[in-house]
């Protein structure tokens, strides 16, 4: 079962690389924001996965919850700023 979890972890990490490509190359600022959101969702999943691998889920769940809530605050703040500011300063 641990091998399976390791394979899942590797696959998700490779997928993070795809979103990272979107963060680097995204034509507009909002593409970058979307890429960052995708990475953070995967980080939440990965934290729970790591916790399951170590059989210490109760410890990792706390960080995962904190991640999810902070991600909301950060993303809303970014969206508000971008909305006030208007289109990307290119």
């Amino acid at each position: 079962m641990n091998t399976f979890f390791f394979v899942v972890l590797t696959i998700i990490t490779v997928l993070m690389l795809v979103y990272f490509y979107r963060v680097v190359r995204g034509p507009s600022v909002f593409d970058r924001v979307l890429g960052l959101n995708g990475i953070s969702t995967k980080a939440i999943v990965l934290l729970v996965l790591i916790g399951t691998m170590f059989e210490r889920v109760d410890m990792f769940i706390d960080i995962s919850t904190g991640y999810a809530l902070l991600n909301l605050v950060g993303a809303l703040a970014i969206a508000k700023f971008l909305e006030e500011r208007g289109a990307s300063p290119k």
Partner: peptide, 8 residues
């Protein structure tokens, strides 16, 4: 983009 990459 540097800011967002730093976030990731």
């Amino acid at each position: 983009s540097a800011v967002f990459i730093l976030g990731s």
